[in-house]
C-alpha cells in the first residue's frame, strides 16, 4: 500500500512536470503544425540561467525564476521570426526535424561552451526544502509545489483557450489557419505570442523540475523524446490530451522504475508504441 501511494505521488509530480514542459510543444504542434525538437533546449536554457542567477548573481529564488523565464523568452523569440517561421505548416516534417535538431545541437554546444559540462544545481529556498506528510507518506515540498503548479497551469491554459478572446482566435487558427487569416486574425502575431508562452512554460518546467531532470548539456536531447511522446500520445494541440498523456507516461515510467528498476524505460516505450498504434492521432484531438 505504501509503495502504491509512493508511486502515485511521485508519478503525479513527474507527470505534472512533463505536462508543464510539453504543453507548449503540444500547442505549437497543433497551431503551427511544427515538430519542434528544440523544445527541450528551451527548458534547459531556463535551468541554466536560473542556476547562474542564483549561484553566481546571488538573486533570491523567487526573483531568479521569473527572471530566468523572461530571459529565456528574450533569447528564444528572435529564433521564431528568423528560423521557426520558415518551417511552420507541416508540409515537410523532415525539414522541421532537421532544423530544430540543428537548433538543439547548437544550443547544447553553446551552453556547454558558456557554462561547462557539469550538472548545474538550482538551490531551492528553505521553504521548498522540507518534507510534508501526505496520507502517512512523506513527500518533498518541491514535488508538491510541482503538482500544484501543474494544476494551476492546466487550469489557466484551459481558461485562456476556452474562455478568452485570445483562445477564440487560437482555436479558430488551429481549426482552419486560412479561414482565420481571412477573418483578419493576425496569425503571425498569434504564432509569436504562442511561441513565447510555449518557451516560457518550458523554461519554467526546466527550472522547477531540475531535481527530477538535472540540468546538464545533453538535457535538450535526453528528455526531448519523452516530451515528443507526451504530445504524440496526447494529440497535438489538446490541453486535456497532454495532461492525460503526461500522467500516463509519468505513471508508467515511475511504476516501471519502482517495480522493475533494471528494465529502465522499457515499459514506457512499450506503452508508447501500443498507445500510438491504437490511437495514431492521440488520445484527444482538438480539430477534426
Amino acid at each position: 500500500m505504501d509503495t502504491i501511494i509512493g508511486i502515485g505521488l511521485d508519478a503525479l509530480a513527474y507527470g505534472m512536470l512533463l505536462f508543464i514542459i510539453s504543453i507548449g510543444l503540444s500547442v505549437m504542434m497543433g497551431l503551427m503544425r511544427v515538430i519542434n525538437l528544440a523544445h527541450g533546449a528551451f527548458a534547459m536554457v531556463g535551468g541554466y540561467i536560473a542556476s547562474y542567477a542564483i549561484r553566481q548573481l546571488g538573486l533570491p529564488y523567487v526573483v531568479a525564476v521569473p527572471t530566468a523565464v523572461a530571459a529565456t523568452v528574450v533569447v528564444a523569440l528572435p529564433l521564431e521570426f528568423l528560423l521557426f517561421r520558415r518551417i511552420y505548416g507541416g508540409a515537410e516534417p523532415l525539414k522541421q526535424v532537421l532544423m530544430t535538431i540543428g537548433i538543439a545541437f547548437a544550443v547544447i554546444g553553446i551552453v556547454n561552451a558558456v557554462f561547462g559540462p557539469t550538472i548545474k544545481p538550482i538551490p531551492l529556498p528553505g521553504p521548498l526544502h522540507g518534507i510534508v506528510d501526505i496520507a502517512s507518506h512523506t513527500m518533498a515540498v518541491h514535488r508538491l509545489v510541482l503538482i500544484v503548479a501543474g494544476l494551476v497551469i492546466a487550469a489557466g491554459l484551459w481558461l485562456a483557450v476556452e474562455k478568452s478572446n485570445f483562445g477564440v482566435r487560437l482555436r479558430a487558427a488551429v481549426d482552419n489557419p486560412d479561414m482565420a487569416a481571412a477573418l483578419g486574425i493576425r496569425t503571425d502575431r498569434l504564432y509569436l505570442v504562442t511561441f513565447g508562452i510555449a518557451v516560457a512554460l518550458a523554461a519554467f518546467g526546466g527550472i522547477a523540475g531540475a531535481e527530477l531532470m538535472p540540468i546538464e548539456p545533453t538535457y535538450a536531447l535526453r528528455y526531448m523524446v519523452t516530451f515528443l511522446v507526451v504530445v504524440s500520445v496526447g494529440g497535438a494541440g489538446s490541453t486535456t490530451g497532454a495532461l492525460v498523456a503526461s500522467l500516463i507516461i509519468g505513471l508508467v515510467d515511475t511504476a516501471g522504475r519502482y517495480l522493475f528498476p533494471s528494465y529502465g524505460m522499457f515499459f514506457t516505450y512499450a506503452a508508447v508504441i501500443l498507445i500510438v498504434e491504437l490511437a495514431p492521432n492521440g488520445l484527444a484531438r482538438r480539430s477534426a
Binding site: 532544423m99 535538431i101 540543428g102 538543439a104 544550443v107
Partner: peptide, 16 residues
C-alpha cells in the same frame, strides 16, 4: 561541443 555547434548551424543552413 564545438563540433555540435558547427553541425547544428550547418543543419540550419542546409535546411534553409
Amino acid at each position: 561541443f564545438h563540433w555540435l555547434i558547427i553541425v547544428g548551424v550547418l543543419l540550419i543552413v542546409v535546411v534553409l
